[in-house]
Nucleic acid binder design. Structure first.
Length: 254
DNA sequence: ATGGCATGTTACACATGA
């Protein structure tokens, strides 16, 4: 089973790239973040033409997540249960015996911002929910844009980013709390190239200079992590014209 | 040192992202 996460930064703009990527890579489930589409505008037919089904929950202008899959998902959940949130940031569904949860963690803006407090509260709510999901679904994968670089080796310049949003200790603690539920950062199950990142700023030639962060992750429950064969970052789409600022992350599970 | 770039809006600048 091949599962993927990709923050596309507008599915309207990136649809041709997503279509090409799906055709070339044939994942079983592709999790998208920042679709920035209201549900009535979701390109269901373009996706269906490739043999993929769509689940999605979106809103105008911001956020929005989707699951594109070869087989249909069941038991879809479109929000963190019992937690008030205007923003469309999570989508869960079951594919065979694998529970897949797509997340778009709030950015936080800066550690001084109200949005940072919202981010930390959101992560607490996510943890509580994931704990329950793990009990119900031992074969659980949580994929998405976590907007957290877990360790200094996930940051091109740790000194520059020290205590900044995406790298601050409270955020890294929240990430470790998710792992403590019994989830593994699948990327770190394998030997990886140094300076591996999933996001680069559009400005200052950041991609060319590899000034990036690893903030998009695939977390796997123990039952899945033991069968994980690979986890790789696909940098190719970041090289295209009009790329998303994030790259896909791909995990293969036996 | 606070720039720079991309996206969406009902706009002809601003908010948001990371």
């Amino acid at each position: 089973m091949k599962i993927v996460t990709w923050n596309v930064n507008s599915l309207k703009v990136r649809l041709p790239q997503v279509v090409n990527w799906l055709e070339a890579n044939q994942p079983d489930v592709l999790c998208l973040q920042e679709t920035k589409l209201q549900d009535e505008f979701f390109p269901v037919n373009d996706i269906a033409a490739l043999g993929y089904q769509s689940l999605f929950i979106g809103q105008k202008t911001f956020n929005g997540v989707a699951l594109l899959s070869k087989q249909s998902g069941t038991d879809a959940v479109t929000a963190i249960p019992n937690w008030e949130d205007e923003q469309k940031r999570v989508l869960a569904a079951t594919y065979g015996d694998v529970r897949v949860i797509c997340v778009y963690v709030p950015n936080g803006e800066s550690v001084e911002s109200d949005k940072y407090q919202y981010k930390l509260k959101w992560l607490t709510a996510l943890k509580e929910w994931l704990g329950k999901e793990l009990q119900q679904y031992p074969r659980l994968a949580v994929l998405g844009d976590f907007n957290i670089a877990p360790e200094d080796r996930d940051v091109h310049d740790p000194e520059l980013w020290k205590d900044q949003v995406l790298c601050s200790e409270p955020e890294r603690n929240a990430f470790r709390e998710l792992l403590s539920l019994g989830l593994a950062d699948s990327f770190r199950l394998f030997e990886q190239p140094e300076k591996s990142y999933t996001w680069w700023d559009y400005r200052m030639l950041a991609f060319r200079r590899n000034r990036g962060l690893r903030i998009d992750h695939i977390l796997l429950s123990n039952a899945l992590a033991g069968n994980c064969k690979s986890c790789v970052i696909d940098k190719e789409p970041r090289k295209l014209e009009r790329p998303s600022d994030h790259t896909p992350v791909v995990a293969e599970i036996a």
